[in-house]
Computed example of a mutant assay.
Amino acid sequence: MTSAVHYKTAWEDPATRQAWRRTAMFRCAALLGWLLGFPTWLFAVVMTPTWLLVLWLPVLWVGIWYTLLAMVAVTTLRGIRRVLRVYPWQVDIAEVRAKKKGSTQFVVPVPERPEKSVSLGYGGLLGTGQHFWVRAMKSGEVTSAWFAGDPRYVGVVATPGPRNLLWVAQREATDSRMSPRKRGVSPEARALARAAGARVGEG
């Protein structure tokens, strides 16, 4: 059986494609569950005394927030697939660290200058504390991870297998209000990052 790291791109690995499908099914099911919660909430409001509305309103706001988080998780599925179709897996190259406000930081060497590293973060928002990568970091269960991508732009982290796929990105690689990173990056690296869905600028 060919190891995942021996393929030209991570997507060529059958185990990686299976992991992506599992991730997609789980995230779509979670979003559907939250969406179905709104009719349930409305039914509960109609069937209970009016004075209980003061209790049901906070439940509504929590439901809206978690639905938004679930929608964001679903929208990143395409980004995960784009990265995996461009880059190969690099085993245990990303160091996993704790960051402020309960978030997780992935420290990855720069492809063209491995003596230097770049950090990508996840979490720190209300509702992300129970995500696998935040819980695993707090418990010390995971200290390193597989990585596919370019840490100066976008990437995907995973535990060995691969499992627990997570899309991560530098803000300037996705936010049109910021100038994309160009300094110190070769044309070849920028072309790969562009193919993976990152903003790399012109020239």
Rank of each mutant, 00 (worst) to 15 (best):
V168G: 02
V157K: 06
V154P: 01
K100P: 09
M137W: 04
T75C: 12
W34Y: 15
M1E: 11
T16K: 05
S179W: 15
A148R: 00
W11I: 03
F38D: 06
R82W: 03
W56T: 08
K101F: 06
T23K: 06
R27K: 15
W146C: 02
D92R: 15
D150M: 01
E188H: 12
A189D: 07
T76Y: 09
Q130V: 14
T143H: 12
A169I: 03
A73D: 12
R163P: 00
V107E: 12
P151H: 06
T143D: 10
T104E: 09
G121H: 09
R21H: 14
T23E: 11
A94E: 05
Q170C: 04
K138C: 01
S119P: 03
H131D: 15
T9N: 11
V96N: 04
A148N: 05
R78G: 13
R190F: 04
R22D: 12
E141V: 07
T9P: 03
F26T: 13
W20F: 05
G33M: 06
L31F: 03
A191E: 11
T128K: 11
P109D: 07
K116A: 13
T9V: 07
M137Y: 02
A169V: 05
V96H: 01
T67A: 11
V134W: 03
L53E: 08
A98Q: 14
A136T: 08
R21W: 07
V110A: 02
G201L: 04
T67K: 10
L31D: 01
G129C: 10
W41G: 02
A195Q: 13
R171T: 13
A70N: 13
F26R: 14
E12C: 05
E112D: 14
D92I: 10
R113M: 08
G63C: 10
G79K: 13
P151T: 01
G63P: 04
S3L: 11
V157T: 01
I64F: 14
A29D: 00
G123I: 08
W167V: 05
A44N: 13
A193T: 04
D175E: 09
R81H: 09
W167K: 07
E112P: 10
Q130D: 13
V110M: 08
G124L: 04
W65R: 15
G127F: 04
P160F: 00
A173L: 00
T128R: 12
P39R: 07
S103Y: 04
A173M: 00
G197H: 07
W167F: 10
T128E: 12
T48A: 13
H6W: 11
S179T: 15
A198N: 03
Q170W: 03
A158S: 06
M178P: 02
G37W: 01
V72Q: 13
W89P: 03
E188A: 12
G63R: 11
L36C: 14
V59Y: 05
G149R: 03
V118K: 09
R113N: 10
F26Y: 10
S139G: 14
V45R: 08
E95T: 14
G121C: 07
S117L: 05
E172A: 12
Y153K: 02
M178T: 07
V134D: 05
